[in-house]
Every structure is written in C-alpha cells, then in structure tokens.
C-alpha cells in the first residue's frame, strides 16, 4: 500500500551505489555499541553489587548516574571535546555513561528479587557470601540483568547515531547527510537500518538469555505438559 510513496521518496540508485559505505558504517555502529555496553557493564557490575550489599549507597549511585543519563547526548559530547577531542574516546565516554543507570538499576533489581528463603537455605548449607552471589543470586537475577543489557543495547544503538555530529556515528552518518543535504533517502537508510540493527541485537540477546537460563524454559515446558 505504501509502496508507491516510499518508492517516490527513496532514491534506490543512490542506495545501490552506497552499499559499500553502508557496510562500513554498519560495522562501526556495531563496534561503538558493543564497546559501550561492554565497558558499561564492567563498570556497572561491581557498583551494582556494592549498592545491593550496602543499601545506603544505592540512592547516591543512581542519583549520579541519573544526572549523567539526563544530560542531552550532544551537550555531553561537546563538553568532552576540549579534553578528548573529536575521537572515539569522546563518543565512548558519552555512550558508556548512558548505559550505567539502566544496567545498575536492573542488576540491583534482579538481585533484590531473589527470594530471601533461597539465600537462607544456601547460607544454611554453608555457602560463603561470594558463593551465594555467584551460584545462587546471579543465576536467579539473570533474566532481569539481561533485560537491562537489552534495553542498554537498544538505547545505545539509537544514541550512536548522534555521534555522527562529532565525526563518528556509524549509520548516523547517513542521517546527518540527509539532514544537511535535505536528502530524505540518506536519513531513511540510516534510521531504518539503525532500527533493524536494534531489533536484531535485541533478538540475539534474548536467545543468549534463553541459552543461559535453560531452567526458565524447563519450567515453562512442565507447566504446559
């Protein structure tokens, strides 16, 4: 139904000629996202476990990461430029700082949702605090933690496009091009591929989650049997 409209807006010849560039930008987009979420998780994980064990630190940690999350991305990138220049570092510092709030909140929420009697049972069996964390709490918290990773990934894929304004940007390169040259095809290619990438990444992470928590599936199967 929309075919003629889209056909008129999109310059397919241009798309055909840009296939190589699209591939290059797609790879950059994935790299920027993977580094941001990976580094974000490495920072968030110890902070979240700390905030979970010491409740009074939860509010200040989420307050600081909340302020970071609220600062508009373009403003944050601009404020970093005098220190880190127009570099990948500037882009990544900004992108990482947006993942922190999402990841920390979800890791803590996942850990808090672990039933107290399960923890007590593990304690009664002589588990140390570290053993309880790694073999009881984290596995049970995994679905909520993975939900956080998925939201952080989808959000980051969208934010990466803004880094086009500081010379990075992956698929955002095309969005910026469309804006500057008033050429809708380029913007649509950038935006549509960015959404597609987000959907694919979300689906893949869901598969990873199912693979990591086979017991969740087992319960469902039993419920239907």
């Amino acid at each position: 139904m929309n075919q003629p409209v889209i056909g008129a807006i999109l310059d397919w010849d241009w798309v055909g000629r840009q296939l190589d560039t699209i591939g290059v930008q797609l790879v950059e987009h994935v790299q920027l996202t993977a580094i941001a979420v990976g580094v974000g998780f490495v920072i968030s994980f110890p902070l979240a476990v700390f905030a979970y064990r010491h409740k009074r630190f939860y509010a200040p940690i989420t307050w600081v990461t909340g302020v970071l999350y609220t600062i508009p991305s373009l403003a944050l990138f601009i404020l970093l430029i005098p220190y880190t220049g127009l570099s990948t570092a500037t882009a990544e510092i900004g992108l990482v700082s947006y993942t922190l709030l999402i990841l920390i909140r979800n890791i803590v929420a996942g850990l808090r949702a672990v039933p107290a009697d399960v923890k007590e049972a593990a304690e009664g069996m002589g588990y140390t605090r570290r053993q309880i964390l790694w073999s009881v709490e984290l596995p049970l918290a995994l679905p909520v933690i993975m939900a956080g990773v998925r939201i952080a990934t989808v959000t980051t894929i969208g934010l990466v496009t803004v880094t086009a304004l500081i010379g990075k940007g992956g698929l955002g390169f095309f969005i910026l091009r469309g804006l500057r040259d008033f050429f809708p095809t380029a913007s649509i290619v950038g935006a549509v591929l960015s959404v597609a990438l987000a959907v694919v990444a979300d689906g893949l992470l869901l598969l990873v989650q199912r693979f990591l928590t086979p017991w969740a599936r087992a319960v469902k199967v039993r419920a239907f049997a």
């Binding site: 969208g158 955002g172 969005i175 469309g178 380029a186 649509i188 935006a191 959404v195 987000a198 959907v199």
Partner: peptide, 13 residues
C-alpha cells in the same frame, strides 16, 4: 528502537 536523531533526519527533508 527509533533513534530521535533518525526521526529528525526523516521529518526535516
């Protein structure tokens, strides 16, 4: 999933 920058990029032209 839709990047806000992408919405601008499409709506503007």
């Amino acid at each position: 999933a839709l990047p806000s920058f992408g919405i601008l990029g499409i709506v503007f032209p």
